[in-house]
Amino acid sequence: MDAFIELDGVEKVFDVRRRTGFLRRERRQVRAVDGLSFTVARGEIVGYIGPNGAGKSTTIKMLTGILTPSGGRLRVAGIDPARERTRLAHRIGVVFGQRTTLWWDLPLIDSYRLAHRMYRIPDARYRENLDRLVELLDLESLLEVPVRQLSLGQRMRGDIAAALLHDPEVLYLDEPTIGLDVVSKARVREFLGELNTERGTTVLLTTHDLQDIERLCSRVMVIDHGRMMYDGPLAGLHEAGESERTLVVDLERELPPIDVGPAARVVRVEGPRQWLAFPASESAAPLVARIAAEHPLVDLSVREPDIEAVIGRMYADRETVVPGARNS
């Protein structure tokens, strides 16, 4: 396996000063990343998740060379990011979900022209990449529009294009779908999938949206308190977290809780609507068939577990040996 990103016992320790009195200060060390080891192969799409403050963005900042690790070994494309930040910059693309790097008052195309020159992209390649990105991300009609007039979804697409003009080998995405409407989310996901299959770009994304991961990632890493909690396929995460999906059924009238045996259990009843929880690893089809056969069904929908719920369940049973975790 061609290891493109390598972390070996990487640590990041912050000194936090806290005011405890008028003049008294308390100094405390916080291990934001605590002996993290993993490798990502070229061409993988990895979801990097964990609760707020778990150490996700600290990891990304070390991978991009913004922060210097306090210990351990870290390489991206064979480069030590902290020592050769600018050399690495040519080979990586970064999208910060909430902070645009586009030029607010200028037409979108101007931001791309700047990238063209700042990254010294050869003219032919720039032209080719721009045409391709404009087509795939549907930016044609937006190129001459000042960035401040773009919607959030349009801006995100614009940001992603800006991060890819110089053909980076790896793309880091920090919450790429946060705040986007359903259509924009779908478009961003579709694009990232294509980018990965066609160009072989390695993608590492942090997200709170489990659907991002379901649609894109063959592999998930869960981090908390700076340690790896889980590293493996998404399905395994569901098992590890024993997560449940919810089937919401609308019946013709108010009825007592439906009994479908051990396959699912009713967790909530509100008038003719009932919520049934069932294991996320099971298919919903037999359950739906059975309910439809036995009860006056009007409408139904399946709700996916959100990532916090999955992780929350996982933590509730921390002692479980997590399959695939390379670090504990």
Binding site: T64, V94, F96, R99, M118
Partner: peptide, 13 residues
């Protein structure tokens, strides 16, 4: 406001 980070990932001093 954290926007210094966006400058640190560009290939320039």
């Amino acid at each position: 406001d954290g926007t210094l980070d966006t400058l640190l990932v560009r290939p320039a001093p």
